[in-house]
Design a protein around this nucleic acid. Sequence first.
DNA 1: TGAATATTTGGACGATAGTACAAATATGGT
DNA 2: ACCATATTTGTACTATCGTCCAAATATTCA
Lengths: 248, 248
Amino acid sequence: MVRKPAKSGIKSGVKVASTRKPNMREAILAAAEELFSTYGFNAVSVRDIAQAAGANPGSVTYHFKTKDGLLLEIYRRHCGPMNRRRSELLAAARRVRDLQDRLEAIVRAYVLPAFTSGSDLAGGGTRFTRLRAIMSAEGNEVVRKIIAQTFDDTSHAFIDAIHESLPHIPRTDLVWRGHFLLGALYYTLVTPERVSRLSRGSADGTDAGHAIEELVRATVAALQAAPLDQGAPAPRKMAGANPGRALT
Amino acid sequence: MVRKPAKSGIKSGVKVASTRKPNMREAILAAAEELFSTYGFNAVSVRDIAQAAGANPGSVTYHFKTKDGLLLEIYRRHCGPMNRRRSELLAAARRVRDLQDRLEAIVRAYVLPAFTSGSDLAGGGTRFTRLRAIMSAEGNEVVRKIIAQTFDDTSHAFIDAIHESLPHIPRTDLVWRGHFLLGALYYTLVTPERVSRLSRGSADGTDAGHAIEELVRATVAALQAAPLDQGAPAPRKMAGANPGRALT
DNA sequence: TGAATATTTGGACGATAGTACAAATATGGT
DNA sequence: ACCATATTTGTACTATCGTCCAAATATTCA
Protein backbone atom coordinates (compact mmCIF):
# COMPACT_ATOMS: atom_id res chain seq x y z
CA MET A 1 0.00 0.00 0.00
CA VAL A 2 1.17 3.52 -0.52
CA ARG A 3 -0.91 5.67 1.74
CA LYS A 4 -1.64 5.81 5.43
CA PRO A 5 1.41 7.52 6.94
CA ALA A 6 0.04 7.55 10.49
CA LYS A 7 0.72 4.37 12.42
CA SER A 8 -2.18 3.24 14.50
CA GLY A 9 -1.85 3.83 18.20
CA ILE A 10 -0.65 0.32 18.84
CA LYS A 11 3.02 0.19 19.77
CA SER A 12 4.87 -2.53 17.95
CA GLY A 13 5.37 -5.69 19.98
CA VAL A 14 3.14 -4.62 22.83
CA LYS A 15 0.09 -6.73 23.49
CA VAL A 16 -3.19 -4.86 23.72
CA ALA A 17 -5.46 -6.91 25.92
CA SER A 18 -8.62 -4.91 25.38
CA THR A 19 -8.42 -5.20 21.62
CA ARG A 20 -8.40 -9.03 21.52
CA LYS A 21 -10.55 -10.14 18.65
CA PRO A 22 -13.04 -12.88 19.50
CA ASN A 23 -13.15 -13.98 15.87
CA MET A 24 -10.02 -13.13 14.01
CA ARG A 25 -11.27 -14.60 10.77
CA GLU A 26 -14.08 -12.07 10.62
CA ALA A 27 -11.77 -9.23 11.53
CA ILE A 28 -9.43 -10.14 8.69
CA LEU A 29 -12.32 -10.33 6.25
CA ALA A 30 -13.60 -6.93 7.31
CA ALA A 31 -10.18 -5.32 7.11
CA ALA A 32 -9.48 -6.83 3.70
CA GLU A 33 -12.83 -5.68 2.39
CA GLU A 34 -12.23 -2.16 3.56
CA LEU A 35 -8.70 -1.94 2.22
CA PHE A 36 -9.37 -3.63 -1.12
CA SER A 37 -12.38 -1.44 -1.78
CA THR A 38 -10.35 1.65 -1.01
CA TYR A 39 -6.98 1.05 -2.61
CA GLY A 40 -7.58 -1.86 -4.95
CA PHE A 41 -6.42 -5.44 -4.76
CA ASN A 42 -2.92 -5.00 -6.11
CA ALA A 43 -2.07 -2.02 -3.93
CA VAL A 44 -2.85 -3.75 -0.64
CA SER A 45 -0.51 -6.32 0.86
CA VAL A 46 -1.36 -9.22 3.10
CA ARG A 47 0.64 -7.52 5.80
CA ASP A 48 -1.46 -4.37 5.47
CA ILE A 49 -4.58 -6.43 6.01
CA ALA A 50 -3.14 -8.31 8.96
CA GLN A 51 -2.08 -5.11 10.65
CA ALA A 52 -5.44 -3.46 10.11
CA ALA A 53 -7.15 -6.50 11.58
CA GLY A 54 -4.74 -6.69 14.50
CA ALA A 55 -3.63 -10.10 13.33
CA ASN A 56 -0.46 -11.83 12.29
CA PRO A 57 0.29 -12.19 8.58
CA GLY A 58 0.46 -15.94 9.09
CA SER A 59 -3.13 -15.95 10.27
CA VAL A 60 -4.28 -14.73 6.91
CA THR A 61 -2.54 -17.63 5.23
CA TYR A 62 -3.98 -20.02 7.78
CA HIS A 63 -7.59 -18.94 7.26
CA PHE A 64 -7.61 -18.22 3.54
CA LYS A 65 -4.55 -19.97 2.18
CA THR A 66 -3.71 -17.26 -0.37
CA LYS A 67 -4.46 -13.61 -1.05
CA ASP A 68 -6.71 -14.68 -3.90
CA GLY A 69 -8.52 -17.02 -1.53
CA LEU A 70 -9.25 -14.09 0.72
CA LEU A 71 -10.74 -12.13 -2.14
CA LEU A 72 -12.75 -15.15 -3.17
CA GLU A 73 -14.21 -15.51 0.30
CA ILE A 74 -15.25 -11.85 0.34
CA TYR A 75 -17.18 -12.37 -2.86
CA ARG A 76 -18.74 -15.55 -1.54
CA ARG A 77 -19.89 -13.65 1.48
CA HIS A 78 -21.74 -10.96 -0.38
CA CYS A 79 -22.84 -12.30 -3.76
CA GLY A 80 -25.47 -14.64 -2.37
CA PRO A 81 -27.32 -12.20 -0.09
CA MET A 82 -27.05 -9.35 -2.56
CA ASN A 83 -28.49 -11.30 -5.47
CA ARG A 84 -31.14 -12.80 -3.23
CA ARG A 85 -32.23 -9.34 -2.19
CA ARG A 86 -32.26 -8.28 -5.81
CA SER A 87 -34.46 -11.21 -6.72
CA GLU A 88 -36.89 -10.36 -3.94
CA LEU A 89 -37.15 -6.74 -4.99
CA LEU A 90 -37.39 -7.72 -8.64
CA ALA A 91 -40.27 -10.12 -7.92
CA ALA A 92 -42.09 -7.36 -6.05
CA ALA A 93 -41.43 -4.91 -8.85
CA ARG A 94 -42.86 -7.26 -11.45
CA ARG A 95 -46.18 -7.10 -9.64
CA VAL A 96 -46.48 -3.35 -10.03
CA ARG A 97 -49.42 -2.60 -12.33
CA ASP A 98 -48.57 0.75 -13.89
CA LEU A 99 -45.93 0.19 -16.56
CA GLN A 100 -44.03 3.36 -15.83
CA ASP A 101 -43.97 2.67 -12.11
CA ARG A 102 -43.00 -0.92 -12.74
CA LEU A 103 -39.98 0.06 -14.80
CA GLU A 104 -38.84 2.42 -12.09
CA ALA A 105 -39.31 -0.28 -9.47
CA ILE A 106 -37.23 -2.71 -11.50
CA VAL A 107 -34.37 -0.27 -11.81
CA ARG A 108 -34.61 0.47 -8.11
CA ALA A 109 -34.52 -3.24 -7.37
CA TYR A 110 -31.22 -3.43 -9.20
CA VAL A 111 -29.65 -0.34 -7.69
CA LEU A 112 -30.80 -0.46 -4.08
CA PRO A 113 -29.01 -3.64 -2.93
CA ALA A 114 -25.76 -2.14 -4.17
CA PHE A 115 -26.07 0.76 -1.74
CA THR A 116 -27.78 -0.53 1.35
CA SER A 117 -25.79 -2.71 3.68
CA GLY A 118 -28.79 -4.67 4.95
CA SER A 119 -27.85 -6.34 8.22
CA ASP A 120 -24.43 -4.84 7.77
CA LEU A 121 -23.34 -7.98 5.99
CA ALA A 122 -26.32 -9.28 4.07
CA GLY A 123 -26.63 -6.98 1.12
CA GLY A 124 -23.02 -6.01 0.89
CA GLY A 125 -23.50 -2.30 0.86
CA THR A 126 -21.42 0.36 -0.75
CA ARG A 127 -18.15 -1.18 0.39
CA PHE A 128 -18.64 -4.35 -1.56
CA THR A 129 -19.96 -2.55 -4.62
CA ARG A 130 -16.99 -0.25 -4.53
CA LEU A 131 -14.80 -3.33 -4.36
CA ARG A 132 -16.52 -4.78 -7.41
CA ALA A 133 -16.00 -1.52 -9.25
CA ILE A 134 -12.29 -1.51 -8.56
CA MET A 135 -11.93 -5.18 -9.41
CA SER A 136 -13.65 -4.71 -12.74
CA ALA A 137 -11.15 -2.00 -13.59
CA GLU A 138 -8.15 -3.98 -12.43
CA GLY A 139 -9.36 -7.00 -14.37
CA ASN A 140 -8.61 -9.56 -11.67
CA GLU A 141 -8.51 -13.15 -12.84
CA VAL A 142 -10.20 -14.71 -9.81
CA VAL A 143 -13.11 -12.32 -9.93
CA ARG A 144 -13.89 -12.91 -13.58
CA LYS A 145 -15.08 -16.45 -13.00
CA ILE A 146 -17.24 -15.58 -10.02
CA ILE A 147 -18.92 -12.82 -11.94
CA ALA A 148 -19.70 -14.86 -15.01
CA GLN A 149 -21.38 -17.58 -12.98
CA THR A 150 -23.00 -15.38 -10.34
CA PHE A 151 -24.05 -12.10 -11.85
CA ASP A 152 -24.86 -12.91 -15.43
CA ASP A 153 -27.99 -14.80 -14.42
CA THR A 154 -29.19 -11.90 -12.33
CA SER A 155 -28.41 -9.46 -15.09
CA HIS A 156 -30.38 -11.55 -17.57
CA ALA A 157 -33.37 -11.63 -15.25
CA PHE A 158 -33.33 -7.85 -15.01
CA ILE A 159 -32.93 -7.35 -18.73
CA ASP A 160 -35.85 -9.69 -19.30
CA ALA A 161 -38.02 -7.83 -16.80
CA ILE A 162 -37.14 -4.51 -18.38
CA HIS A 163 -37.84 -5.94 -21.79
CA GLU A 164 -41.33 -6.88 -20.65
CA SER A 165 -41.98 -3.30 -19.64
CA LEU A 166 -40.51 -1.96 -22.87
CA PRO A 167 -41.32 -4.60 -25.48
CA HIS A 168 -40.93 -2.22 -28.40
CA ILE A 169 -37.24 -1.70 -27.68
CA PRO A 170 -34.79 -4.33 -28.93
CA ARG A 171 -33.02 -6.36 -26.28
CA THR A 172 -29.66 -5.26 -27.58
CA ASP A 173 -30.33 -1.64 -26.75
CA LEU A 174 -31.55 -2.58 -23.29
CA VAL A 175 -28.37 -4.55 -22.68
CA TRP A 176 -26.32 -1.52 -23.57
CA ARG A 177 -28.34 0.71 -21.30
CA GLY A 178 -28.09 -1.74 -18.44
CA HIS A 179 -24.36 -1.77 -19.03
CA PHE A 180 -24.30 2.01 -18.78
CA LEU A 181 -26.27 1.84 -15.56
CA LEU A 182 -23.68 -0.41 -13.99
CA GLY A 183 -20.87 1.86 -15.12
CA ALA A 184 -22.60 4.90 -13.70
CA LEU A 185 -23.25 3.07 -10.45
CA TYR A 186 -19.65 1.98 -10.09
CA TYR A 187 -18.22 5.35 -10.95
CA THR A 188 -20.49 7.09 -8.49
CA LEU A 189 -19.29 4.87 -5.68
CA VAL A 190 -15.65 5.13 -6.62
CA THR A 191 -15.48 8.92 -6.89
CA PRO A 192 -18.19 10.39 -4.69
CA GLU A 193 -16.55 13.71 -4.10
CA ARG A 194 -16.27 14.71 -7.74
CA VAL A 195 -19.96 15.47 -7.94
CA SER A 196 -19.64 17.70 -4.92
CA ARG A 197 -16.82 19.61 -6.54
CA LEU A 198 -18.38 20.01 -9.96
CA SER A 199 -21.69 21.21 -8.61
CA ARG A 200 -19.95 23.76 -6.41
CA GLY A 201 -21.33 22.43 -3.17
CA SER A 202 -24.98 22.43 -4.16
CA ALA A 203 -24.95 18.63 -4.35
CA ASP A 204 -23.35 16.19 -1.97
CA GLY A 205 -21.68 13.22 -3.62
CA THR A 206 -21.74 11.27 -0.39
CA ASP A 207 -25.51 11.45 -0.01
CA ALA A 208 -26.41 7.90 -0.95
CA GLY A 209 -30.13 8.45 -0.99
CA HIS A 210 -29.88 11.34 -3.37
CA ALA A 211 -27.43 9.47 -5.58
CA ILE A 212 -29.85 6.57 -5.88
CA GLU A 213 -32.71 8.82 -6.87
CA GLU A 214 -30.65 10.62 -9.49
CA LEU A 215 -29.38 7.35 -10.88
CA VAL A 216 -32.82 5.78 -11.05
CA ARG A 217 -34.34 8.82 -12.69
CA ALA A 218 -31.62 9.05 -15.32
CA THR A 219 -31.65 5.32 -16.02
CA VAL A 220 -35.38 5.08 -16.48
CA ALA A 221 -35.26 7.89 -18.99
CA ALA A 222 -32.34 6.29 -20.81
CA LEU A 223 -34.12 2.94 -20.99
CA GLN A 224 -37.21 4.55 -22.49
CA ALA A 225 -35.31 6.33 -25.23
CA ALA A 226 -36.12 5.39 -28.79
CA PRO A 227 -33.87 2.61 -30.05
CA LEU A 228 -31.16 3.26 -32.60
CA ASP A 229 -31.91 2.79 -36.26
CA GLN A 230 -31.16 -0.76 -37.23
CA GLY A 231 -29.65 0.77 -40.35
CA ALA A 232 -25.92 1.14 -40.78
CA PRO A 233 -23.83 1.60 -37.63
CA ALA A 234 -20.22 2.61 -38.01
CA PRO A 235 -18.07 -0.42 -38.72
CA ARG A 236 -14.82 0.59 -37.03
CA LYS A 237 -13.52 -1.63 -34.25
CA MET A 238 -12.04 -0.40 -31.03
CA ALA A 239 -8.26 -0.45 -30.99
CA GLY A 240 -6.79 -2.90 -28.51
CA ALA A 241 -10.01 -3.68 -26.72
CA ASN A 242 -8.20 -6.51 -25.06
CA PRO A 243 -10.32 -9.64 -25.26
CA GLY A 244 -9.65 -11.15 -21.85
CA ARG A 245 -11.07 -8.30 -19.86
CA ALA A 246 -13.11 -8.40 -16.71
CA LEU A 247 -16.72 -7.64 -16.02
CA THR A 248 -19.04 -6.64 -13.25
CA MET B 1 2.31 -8.08 -13.66
CA VAL B 2 0.49 -11.33 -13.32
CA ARG B 3 -0.55 -12.31 -16.81
CA LYS B 4 1.19 -12.84 -20.10
CA PRO B 5 2.65 -16.35 -19.79
CA ALA B 6 4.07 -16.38 -23.31
CA LYS B 7 7.45 -14.76 -23.57
CA SER B 8 7.82 -12.61 -26.63
CA GLY B 9 9.91 -14.10 -29.39
CA ILE B 10 12.99 -12.26 -28.26
CA LYS B 11 15.54 -14.54 -26.69
CA SER B 12 17.01 -13.13 -23.50
CA GLY B 13 20.39 -11.55 -23.92
CA VAL B 14 20.41 -11.87 -27.68
CA LYS B 15 20.51 -8.66 -29.65
CA VAL B 16 17.86 -8.26 -32.31
CA ALA B 17 19.25 -5.94 -34.91
CA SER B 18 16.09 -5.48 -36.94
CA THR B 19 14.06 -4.43 -33.88
CA ARG B 20 16.29 -1.50 -32.97
CA LYS B 21 14.10 1.37 -31.86
CA PRO B 22 14.98 4.73 -33.41
CA ASN B 23 13.39 6.54 -30.51
CA MET B 24 13.39 4.51 -27.36
CA ARG B 25 11.64 7.17 -25.35
CA GLU B 26 8.57 6.93 -27.57
CA ALA B 27 8.65 3.14 -27.48
CA ILE B 28 8.67 3.17 -23.69
CA LEU B 29 5.78 5.61 -23.59
CA ALA B 30 3.75 3.47 -25.97
CA ALA B 31 4.46 0.28 -24.08
CA ALA B 32 3.64 1.85 -20.74
CA GLU B 33 0.40 3.24 -22.10
CA GLU B 34 -0.66 -0.11 -23.42
CA LEU B 35 0.27 -2.04 -20.27
CA PHE B 36 -1.12 0.48 -17.80
CA SER B 37 -4.41 0.72 -19.66
CA THR B 38 -4.69 -3.07 -19.69
CA TYR B 39 -3.54 -4.19 -16.27
CA GLY B 40 -3.59 -1.02 -14.21
CA PHE B 41 -0.74 1.04 -12.80
CA ASN B 42 0.02 -1.04 -9.74
CA ALA B 43 0.04 -4.37 -11.55
CA VAL B 44 2.65 -3.36 -14.10
CA SER B 45 6.31 -3.12 -13.19
CA VAL B 46 8.95 -0.94 -14.73
CA ARG B 47 10.63 -4.09 -15.94
CA ASP B 48 7.47 -5.18 -17.72
CA ILE B 49 7.40 -1.89 -19.55
CA ALA B 50 11.07 -2.01 -20.44
CA GLN B 51 10.75 -5.52 -21.81
CA ALA B 52 7.67 -4.67 -23.85
CA ALA B 53 9.50 -1.69 -25.32
CA GLY B 54 12.65 -3.67 -25.97
CA ALA B 55 14.53 -1.42 -23.61
CA ASN B 56 16.57 -1.70 -20.46
CA PRO B 57 14.91 -0.96 -17.12
CA GLY B 58 17.50 1.69 -16.52
CA SER B 59 16.40 3.54 -19.63
CA VAL B 60 13.01 4.11 -18.11
CA THR B 61 14.59 5.73 -15.11
CA TYR B 62 16.82 7.77 -17.35
CA HIS B 63 13.99 9.20 -19.44
CA PHE B 64 11.27 9.58 -16.84
CA LYS B 65 13.09 9.49 -13.51
CA THR B 66 10.34 7.54 -11.71
CA LYS B 67 7.39 5.33 -12.51
CA ASP B 68 5.09 8.16 -11.50
CA GLY B 69 6.96 10.44 -13.87
CA LEU B 70 6.23 8.05 -16.69
CA LEU B 71 2.54 8.11 -15.90
CA LEU B 72 2.62 11.87 -15.68
CA GLU B 73 4.20 12.16 -19.11
CA ILE B 74 1.52 9.92 -20.63
CA TYR B 75 -1.15 12.23 -19.29
CA ARG B 76 0.70 15.28 -20.52
CA ARG B 77 0.81 13.75 -23.96
CA HIS B 78 -2.89 13.21 -24.28
CA CYS B 79 -4.75 15.71 -22.14
CA GLY B 80 -3.95 18.72 -24.26
CA PRO B 81 -4.97 17.38 -27.68
CA MET B 82 -8.03 15.60 -26.30
CA ASN B 83 -9.41 18.65 -24.56
CA ARG B 84 -8.57 20.83 -27.53
CA ARG B 85 -10.55 18.53 -29.78
CA ARG B 86 -13.39 18.59 -27.30
CA SER B 87 -13.41 22.37 -27.30
CA GLU B 88 -13.51 22.47 -31.09
CA LEU B 89 -16.41 20.05 -31.27
CA LEU B 90 -18.20 21.83 -28.45
CA ALA B 91 -17.89 25.18 -30.21
CA ALA B 92 -19.32 23.65 -33.36
CA ALA B 93 -22.12 22.01 -31.40
CA ARG B 94 -23.09 25.31 -29.81
CA ARG B 95 -23.84 26.69 -33.24
CA VAL B 96 -26.43 24.03 -34.02
CA ARG B 97 -29.85 25.68 -34.27
CA ASP B 98 -32.30 22.96 -33.33
CA LEU B 99 -32.21 22.50 -29.56
CA GLN B 100 -32.60 18.75 -29.67
CA ASP B 101 -29.87 18.39 -32.27
CA ARG B 102 -27.67 20.76 -30.39
CA LEU B 103 -27.90 18.75 -27.19
CA GLU B 104 -27.00 15.60 -29.07
CA ALA B 105 -24.08 17.35 -30.73
CA ILE B 106 -22.81 18.52 -27.36
CA VAL B 107 -22.86 15.02 -25.92
CA ARG B 108 -21.17 13.71 -29.01
CA ALA B 109 -18.50 16.36 -28.67
CA TYR B 110 -17.76 15.03 -25.21
CA VAL B 111 -17.80 11.35 -26.10
CA LEU B 112 -16.13 11.25 -29.49
CA PRO B 113 -12.62 12.42 -28.54
CA ALA B 114 -12.54 9.64 -25.96
CA PHE B 115 -12.91 6.99 -28.64
CA THR B 116 -11.16 8.26 -31.71
CA SER B 117 -7.40 8.17 -31.76
CA GLY B 118 -7.02 11.16 -34.05
CA SER B 119 -3.59 11.08 -35.62
CA ASP B 120 -2.92 8.03 -33.49
CA LEU B 121 -1.56 10.29 -30.79
CA ALA B 122 -3.48 13.52 -30.94
CA GLY B 123 -6.87 12.58 -29.62
CA GLY B 124 -5.74 9.88 -27.26
CA GLY B 125 -8.15 7.24 -28.34
CA THR B 126 -9.61 4.37 -26.42
CA ARG B 127 -6.28 3.35 -24.91
CA PHE B 128 -5.87 6.60 -23.02
CA THR B 129 -9.49 6.69 -21.94
CA ARG B 130 -9.21 3.13 -20.71
CA LEU B 131 -6.15 4.22 -18.77
CA ARG B 132 -8.07 7.06 -17.20
CA ALA B 133 -10.83 4.67 -16.25
CA ILE B 134 -8.45 2.34 -14.47
CA MET B 135 -6.63 5.17 -12.77
CA SER B 136 -9.86 6.61 -11.43
CA ALA B 137 -10.65 3.25 -9.86
CA GLU B 138 -7.18 2.78 -8.41
CA GLY B 139 -7.25 6.29 -7.01
CA ASN B 140 -3.70 7.18 -8.00
CA GLU B 141 -2.24 10.19 -6.25
CA VAL B 142 -0.36 11.63 -9.19
CA VAL B 143 -3.36 11.53 -11.47
CA ARG B 144 -5.66 13.32 -9.06
CA LYS B 145 -3.88 16.63 -9.41
CA ILE B 146 -3.68 16.49 -13.19
CA ILE B 147 -7.39 15.79 -13.43
CA ALA B 148 -8.49 18.55 -11.13
CA GLN B 149 -6.56 21.16 -13.07
CA THR B 150 -7.09 19.77 -16.57
CA PHE B 151 -10.50 18.17 -16.82
CA ASP B 152 -12.65 20.14 -14.42
CA ASP B 153 -12.59 23.19 -16.69
CA THR B 154 -13.66 21.13 -19.66
CA SER B 155 -16.36 19.44 -17.65
CA HIS B 156 -17.70 22.79 -16.52
CA ALA B 157 -17.83 24.04 -20.07
CA PHE B 158 -19.87 21.04 -21.11
CA ILE B 159 -22.23 21.31 -18.17
CA ASP B 160 -22.75 24.96 -19.01
CA ALA B 161 -23.46 24.19 -22.64
CA ILE B 162 -25.91 21.47 -21.68
CA HIS B 163 -27.55 23.81 -19.22
CA GLU B 164 -28.16 26.30 -22.00
CA SER B 165 -29.97 23.65 -23.99
CA LEU B 166 -31.96 22.52 -20.96
CA PRO B 167 -32.46 25.67 -18.89
CA HIS B 168 -35.42 24.27 -16.98
CA ILE B 169 -33.29 21.53 -15.37
CA PRO B 170 -31.23 22.46 -12.31
CA ARG B 171 -27.48 22.39 -12.77
CA THR B 172 -27.15 19.86 -9.97
CA ASP B 173 -29.10 17.23 -11.86
CA LEU B 174 -27.09 17.88 -15.00
CA VAL B 175 -23.88 17.40 -13.04
CA TRP B 176 -25.11 14.04 -11.82
CA ARG B 177 -26.07 12.95 -15.30
CA GLY B 178 -22.76 14.05 -16.71
CA HIS B 179 -21.13 12.04 -13.98
CA PHE B 180 -23.14 9.00 -15.01
CA LEU B 181 -22.12 9.53 -18.60
CA LEU B 182 -18.47 9.42 -17.66
CA GLY B 183 -18.99 6.27 -15.61
CA ALA B 184 -20.81 4.57 -18.47
CA LEU B 185 -18.10 5.63 -20.89
CA TYR B 186 -15.33 4.28 -18.69
CA TYR B 187 -17.06 1.03 -17.97
CA THR B 188 -17.77 0.44 -21.62
CA LEU B 189 -14.11 0.80 -22.48
CA VAL B 190 -12.91 -1.30 -19.59
CA THR B 191 -15.19 -4.29 -20.19
CA PRO B 192 -16.13 -4.33 -23.84
CA GLU B 193 -16.84 -8.04 -24.08
CA ARG B 194 -19.49 -8.12 -21.40
CA VAL B 195 -22.05 -6.53 -23.68
CA SER B 196 -21.32 -9.15 -26.28
CA ARG B 197 -21.91 -11.91 -23.78
CA LEU B 198 -25.09 -10.53 -22.25
CA SER B 199 -26.72 -9.84 -25.58
CA ARG B 200 -25.93 -13.37 -26.77
CA GLY B 201 -23.92 -12.30 -29.76
CA SER B 202 -26.46 -9.94 -31.24
CA ALA B 203 -24.36 -6.96 -30.19
CA ASP B 204 -20.63 -6.52 -30.43
CA GLY B 205 -19.02 -4.79 -27.47
CA THR B 206 -15.91 -4.02 -29.49
CA ASP B 207 -17.77 -2.03 -32.12
CA ALA B 208 -16.75 1.47 -31.14
CA GLY B 209 -19.08 3.24 -33.52
CA HIS B 210 -22.10 1.40 -32.24
CA ALA B 211 -21.07 1.95 -28.63
CA ILE B 212 -20.83 5.67 -29.21
CA GLU B 213 -24.28 5.84 -30.74
CA GLU B 214 -25.84 3.84 -27.93
CA LEU B 215 -24.10 5.97 -25.33
CA VAL B 216 -25.12 9.24 -26.95
CA ARG B 217 -28.72 8.14 -27.35
CA ALA B 218 -29.01 6.98 -23.74
CA THR B 219 -27.29 10.07 -22.37
CA VAL B 220 -29.41 12.56 -24.27
CA ALA B 221 -32.53 10.87 -22.94
CA ALA B 222 -31.17 10.86 -19.41
CA LEU B 223 -30.27 14.53 -19.59
CA GLN B 224 -33.76 15.45 -20.74
CA ALA B 225 -35.48 13.57 -17.92
CA ALA B 226 -37.56 15.62 -15.50
CA PRO B 227 -35.52 16.77 -12.51
CA LEU B 228 -36.02 15.29 -9.08
CA ASP B 229 -38.40 16.96 -6.69
CA GLN B 230 -36.55 19.50 -4.63
CA GLY B 231 -38.59 18.15 -1.73
CA ALA B 232 -37.08 15.72 0.76
CA PRO B 233 -34.26 13.46 -0.40
CA ALA B 234 -33.15 10.63 1.85
CA PRO B 235 -30.68 11.89 4.44
CA ARG B 236 -28.47 8.82 4.88
CA LYS B 237 -24.79 9.15 4.11
CA MET B 238 -22.72 6.59 2.31
CA ALA B 239 -20.63 4.43 4.60
CA GLY B 240 -16.90 4.90 4.21
CA ALA B 241 -17.09 6.99 1.10
CA ASN B 242 -13.44 7.68 1.60
CA PRO B 243 -12.77 11.38 1.21
CA GLY B 244 -9.45 11.30 -0.59
CA ARG B 245 -10.69 9.50 -3.66
CA ALA B 246 -9.77 10.05 -7.25
CA LEU B 247 -11.71 11.47 -10.13
CA THR B 248 -11.90 11.38 -13.88
C1' DT C 1 38.50 13.09 -36.51
C1' DG C 2 38.03 14.01 -31.76
C1' DA C 3 35.83 15.83 -27.92
C1' DA C 4 31.45 16.61 -25.66
C1' DT C 5 27.18 14.93 -24.84
C1' DA C 6 23.28 11.71 -24.87
C1' DT C 7 21.77 7.29 -24.29
C1' DT C 8 21.94 2.43 -23.14
C1' DT C 9 23.55 -1.27 -20.46
C1' DG C 10 24.01 -4.55 -16.68
C1' DG C 11 24.30 -5.07 -12.17
C1' DA C 12 23.39 -3.83 -7.55
C1' DC C 13 20.85 -1.87 -3.49
C1' DG C 14 17.38 -2.07 0.17
C1' DA C 15 12.45 -2.73 0.68
C1' DT C 16 8.64 -5.34 0.37
C1' DA C 17 5.89 -8.89 -1.76
C1' DG C 18 3.28 -13.73 -1.00
C1' DT C 19 3.74 -17.80 1.15
C1' DA C 20 5.43 -21.69 4.16
C1' DC C 21 6.37 -23.84 8.53
C1' DA C 22 7.66 -25.15 13.16
C1' DA C 23 6.95 -23.66 17.71
C1' DA C 24 3.92 -21.51 20.99
C1' DT C 25 -0.56 -20.82 22.73
C1' DA C 26 -5.67 -21.05 23.20
C1' DT C 27 -9.73 -23.84 23.17
C1' DG C 28 -13.13 -27.41 24.04
C1' DG C 29 -14.65 -31.97 25.25
C1' DT C 30 -14.07 -35.80 28.55
C1' DA D 1 -6.46 -32.16 34.56
C1' DC D 2 -5.48 -34.03 30.26
C1' DC D 3 -5.33 -34.58 25.53
C1' DA D 4 -6.58 -33.48 20.76
C1' DT D 5 -7.42 -29.94 17.99
C1' DA D 6 -7.64 -25.08 16.39
C1' DT D 7 -5.47 -20.99 16.12
C1' DT D 8 -1.79 -17.63 16.54
C1' DT D 9 2.95 -16.29 16.39
C1' DG D 10 7.54 -15.40 14.73
C1' DT D 11 10.55 -16.09 11.39
C1' DA D 12 12.50 -17.32 7.07
C1' DC D 13 12.53 -18.18 2.18
C1' DT D 14 12.49 -16.71 -2.47
C1' DA D 15 10.88 -13.43 -5.90
C1' DT D 16 10.23 -9.09 -7.45
C1' DC D 17 9.72 -4.26 -6.71
C1' DG D 18 11.50 0.89 -7.81
C1' DT D 19 15.52 3.15 -8.07
C1' DC D 20 20.35 4.07 -8.50
C1' DC D 21 25.00 4.18 -10.67
C1' DA D 22 29.30 3.44 -13.05
C1' DA D 23 30.85 1.68 -17.25
C1' DA D 24 29.97 0.97 -22.13
C1' DT D 25 28.22 2.63 -26.31
C1' DA D 26 25.93 6.05 -29.73
C1' DT D 27 25.36 10.39 -31.34
C1' DT D 28 26.36 15.11 -32.44
C1' DC D 29 28.95 18.93 -33.91
C1' DA D 30 33.11 21.94 -34.15
